[in-house]
Design a protein around this nucleic acid. Sequence first.
DNA 1: GCTATAAGAAACGTTGAGTTTCTTATAGTC
DNA 2: GACTATAAGAAACTCAACGTTTCTTATAGC
Lengths: 192, 192
Amino acid sequence: MEGQKKNRRRGEVLEAAILQAAWDELREVGYNRLTMEGVAARAKTNKAVVYRRWANKAQLVSAALRKYIMRPVTEVPDTGSLREDVRMLLRGLSSVLQTIGAETMRGLMGEHSLNDMVTHIPGKKNRLTITMTAILRHAEQRGEINPGKMTPRVISLPLDLMRYEILTTLEPMADHVIDEIVDTIFIPLVRR
Amino acid sequence: MEGQKKNRRRGEVLEAAILQAAWDELREVGYNRLTMEGVAARAKTNKAVVYRRWANKAQLVSAALRKYIMRPVTEVPDTGSLREDVRMLLRGLSSVLQTIGAETMRGLMGEHSLNDMVTHIPGKKNRLTITMTAILRHAEQRGEINPGKMTPRVISLPLDLMRYEILTTLEPMADHVIDEIVDTIFIPLVRR
DNA sequence: GCTATAAGAAACGTTGAGTTTCTTATAGTC
DNA sequence: GACTATAAGAAACTCAACGTTTCTTATAGC
């Protein structure tokens, strides 16, 4: 009676179920203890189905992150003050990285499977760097900064510092640390 | 005739042979493909002997790094110029990290087993940070810098940037990048 | 209603981790 | 110089997870 073999999921529906399972598993047991079998079981399917889509754990997790994490960080803050804009951007990144968790960041790094929240490769386009550039353009229009000082490295400096700090400390970054980076490092470097 | 069972190594001699094997293996196959069995075989001993000394791969590799890498970076450069001193320190760290390799750095990170070349935990004592502090003290005596600007975060900034860059790019850091960090970020931040 | 496609299910081989047990060389001690 | 505690050598073993393979079966699309 109860053993209904109906309702076999396919395609996108199944894929979504697996990514959901991966995401739940990631938050529940963490990256290191997440297994392909565990995710498959949680999604009520089996390993083979998972492997038909993603070659390994790192790729599966990256896909899940892309689905569940990436959206919220695209908006460009525009408060009218460089300091406030940068603080907001950093807080946004901080909360994203906090959700991902340092263990996952480290794990993905160890398997060379990164995404552009977690790292910024110098010279490569990166959403957060683009946002930062927009913020700085606004500040420039207001005359707040010295355009000559806006090298790519300086532009990504606050974001990189945050990533490095979370990666090494394994802890979310406190607001006062964000303020410290902004006030004692970044603003002094770009100010007119 | 040839099967002489004599000459059984013990204690420090054996330990040194294992660390040597680990170090060779690390450079030859890299962190991810280094195995305890492989190291044991290379040292002409067996896993049990290795496990009696180190609980896992990360600890074994850390021990090897400590033995083969750490020494060269203790001296404090003192050229009479802040810029030159910092450049020398960074070149020293760069070559150390180059020897370790980014894959190993990432791998150790993924297993939460770090050493103070690879990371600097804010608030913790760190050899390189101590060296940097000494360099800055000299510069201060020469009147080159503004002591009020020497916060711990600013002090470790160049070292952290280098670590982060190597970790993300997987490549050694070119000298001109070192110069860029020193000239466009660090010196402007601490200068009187 | 037929058929190609992909899911479900289960078993398989492999690798490396870490452990256990037993034998045997040897350093230190009497 | 013989005795003994210690740790090395050797081999087998359990376990977990990876990734693959094979076969059956539901079902979407024609």
